[in-house]
Design a protein around this nucleic acid. Structure first.
Lengths: 158, 158
DNA sequence: TGTGAAAGTCCGCAGTA
DNA sequence: TACTGCGGACTTTCACA
């Protein structure tokens, strides 16, 4: 993972459809060299995939919610692989705290959303929060060291 | 948004780097027709972008957290556009409930994460939950009607 | 909206520094 | 690991239905 790899990651995170030739121009490397490096980033699992992002609202998914699941012991949603196939469940995070997981769910209507809740209920207690808007939906991962190293204003603790 | 558009969305969500020729083979349409439809999906905002997905851990972001922000009145993080440029903040959702927003944050270390918390504190009270793992990190949006219409087991309410 | 043909570009595979 | 060169495939544009 040298600087060249990070340059390729930066470009491909911003636009996954860039051709190898265009990439080669942007990072100042020959096309075959670019292709080889990208192939290795894929094989080593740094790049997990290339995805077109779709606006949920324009795709008919107007209802978006975050759901904390407090599961009933072993009957945890994390032990129930079938739930990862439900099309309404967009993300599942296993988390610390009194809940065991946090889901991101989208639905086409409140009725459909209600049905998802009902389908989730056997696994545990779902606690829903509606998403009103998403000011920031996605962000590329920058190379380390480009971190926001400004001094924190005052380190207030409470 | 006919069936053909959904077929293209399905393919491009699964692999954003497919060529127009390959797409044309999969949906049984000529390459120029595919290009034209994809261009319109982009222009109408259905497709918001094409992004390479990067494994945060392999990119040095080993710490992932969800942070609920309870902001101090007008000094809300939602009114502070500068925060959307912080590289550690991956997502910002405005939500219902007693908190005003939910952030997804990644950091390279606990120290860096602590610094993010400190930097967030002036905007409001941050409440952090660590992400232990992400069994489902992303899912394509399928066409409507492909919904999981199995009967909810019992509609249990509580 | 869709197709078909032409020009320019790009990709993948060699061989080599 | 990276560069050059070549054959074949691809993208793009245009005229036209």
């Amino acid at each position: 993972m040298d600087e060249m790899d990070w340059a390729l990651l930066r470009e491909l995170q911003a636009d996954a459809r860039l051709s190898y030739s265009e990439l080669s121009r942007r990072v100042h490397l020959s096309p075959p060299a670019v292709a080889e490096r990208v192939r290795r980033l894929e094989e080593t699992g740094v790049i997990t995939g290339y995805h077109a992002h779709v606006d949920p609202a324009r795709a008919g998914r107007t209802v978006i919610a975050l759901i904390r699941m407090s599961c009933y012991g072993a009957r945890c949603i994390l032990n129930s692989p079938e739930t990862t196939a439900w099309p309404e469940i967009m993300q599942i995070h296993r988390i610390t705290g009194d809940a065991c997981s946090m889901l991101t769910v989208t639905a086409g209507s409140i009725e459909e959303f209600e049905a998802v809740i009902d389908r989730l209920a056997p696994y545990g207690q779902p606690s829903s929060t509606m998403v009103l808007s998403t000011p920031l939906g996605w962000r590329p991962i920058p190379p380390p060291g480009s971190g926001n190293s400004e001094p924190a204003p005052s380190r207030r603790r409470r």
